[in-house]
Design a protein around this nucleic acid. Structure first.
Lengths: 280, 280
DNA sequence: ACTTAAGGTCTTGTTTTCTGACCATTCTTT
DNA sequence: AAAGAATGGTCAGAAAACAAGACCTTAAGT
């Protein structure tokens, strides 16, 4: 989340279990929600690295809020460090390329108190994605199979294709990783869709957003790509075959891989601080 | 939900799938949320029929909002017809005895546009509770087994005990049903706790809240009680035994029962309207 | 040089919420 | 019967968030 602590709303001492759901109420402001949605879109790969967000006025129109609200939300993301802002005609808010290192202090400040919660969120994501895969395997129909097969083909092509251009360094605009992320998101979306349950799909997105709220996820880099490709193929096969158990276990394995990568990255990023090293 | 349509927020044309979640934004007010939470707490049996809600000032303190906000929310519930209000020293807001019939139109107005979503939410709840049961079976430890066994014993006693008083009809004050609901909630809480994942537990509560936000759930009445008791016993046994598959399937069956009861109740409550009868 | 499209800044008014006080009612206690 | 206490009912002022719109600055295109 990108929520700011506002005076008037106590910090999250939510859900005292004794009174079954009655606890301090969180009232998200419009700015909170816009920031969350933008971050979600970025986390989902809707706007890839180097890509430009819609103009502020356009965003305001799309979201149905005023421009100051959009500006406040965008400023929050900029402060976190995941947006580069330029002015002028071709200006705008660009998703920052490698904002992990530069913004390490901000990231640490954001995530350090939430480390325990982040671990829990990663665990929840694995469980939920596993459930989605299982359900998709049990409910997929012919159209779903078509979509998943197509998405897998596209993903395979994107993952096995050589680097797009010569200089694929950071800041080189929409690079090869963009296509992989997009097709990866598309494949997972197809699977989620096959599960035929909108609230669950929403929760999946929410989890991804909450997890990636503090740091960028780029799980498929380096030699992890082959593993991811194999996972995706096995996952799709199981779902297409209607084998729920296999789909669930493959999904669990797959997202465990992601989880480990993220946890390693996060611990690496936290290490230089004053903390000795979080318990693993 | 009890949201009022406010000028300035367009009706739910939410989530245009094309832009990955970017669409008109809905900004719920504090009053909306308080009303939802109160109605949910009532629907969940947190406050049983005839019971008094906390005083307005107390509610404001608990929820972390101001009293006018609480008052507005409470007034909304009173208008719907599920609260009786009396003044004076022993006064307060009491959960109305048979508020289902009198307030059917209001409830219908509130819920009708959400019928599709409610169906999806019920489905999601079944899936998630099944996942929780499976995970609990895989992760439970000695303490969890203790807790679940104790909760099951208490539930069994509550469910098999004869009716509390002579006239157990509606309006007879906190009746036998209260104890059953409470111990039922305690058992499910013990199982959820055994799954050892806080975000998932939170989501489970959230689903229950969203589902029951508009109508009272009294699933365990009549001959459904025996079925529920058997389910609970089987569920606890499977979790204790560490049998994830069985736990998941029993949970799915169990919540399917609940789902059917709720859908039947809701359809019954919607039938008198102009709709021919929602497709089942 | 002019136009254009983008972010940056400011003002004004409206709505919602918070704060705190005070009044009215009814049960309990003296 | 009278005083006290706990509750809902009401109101007024302050603060915050937000919407709407105008205007400026920057920088790329023409």
């Amino acid at each position: 989340m990108v929520h700011e602590e506002r005076p008037g709303t106590q910090p999250d001492a939510d859900a005292s279990p004794g009174r079954g759901g009655l606890g301090t109420l969180r009232v998200p402001s419009a700015v909170d929600q816009v920031a969350d949605r933008l971050l979600t879109a970025i986390a989902l790969g809707e706007f890839s690295v180097g890509e430009r967000l819609p103009a502020e006025r356009e965003l305001a129109a799309i979201l149905g809020v005023s421009r100051p609200t959009v500006r406040a939300a965008v400023a929050r993301l900029r402060d976190i460090g995941c947006l580069d802002v330029t002015r002028g005609r071709a200006g705008g808010h660009y998703v920052r390329s490698g904002w992990r290192e530069e913004s390490a202090p901000a990231v640490r400040r954001t995530l350090e108190p939430r480390w325990e919660q982040t671990k829990a969120l990663l665990d929840a994501r694995g469980l939920v994605e596993s459930l989605i895969a299982r359900t998709a395997a049990e409910r997929r129909d012919a159209r779903d199979i078509e979509r998943m097969t197509a998405a897998l083909a596209e993903y395979t092509e994107a993952a096995t294709a050589p680097a797009t251009g010569p200089g694929a360094g950071p800041g080189a605009g929409p690079a090869a990783g963009t296509r992989i992320r997009r097709s990866d998101a598309a494949l997972h979306h197809a699977i989620t869709r096959a599960a035929k349950n909108e609230p669950l799909a929403l929760y999946s997105r929410q989890l991804l957003r909450d997890i990636s709220a503090g740091f960028p996820i780029e799980p498929y880099r380096g030699n992890a790509t082959e593993r991811a490709l194999a996972d995706h193929r096995a996952l799709t096969d199981a779902v297409v075959a209607g084998d729920g158990d296999t789909a669930a276990s493959v999904a669990a394995r797959h997202f465990d891989l992601t989880e480990q990568a993220l946890r390693a990255a996060l611990e690496r990023s936290l290490r230089p601080a004053d903390r000795p090293a979080p318990e693993a």
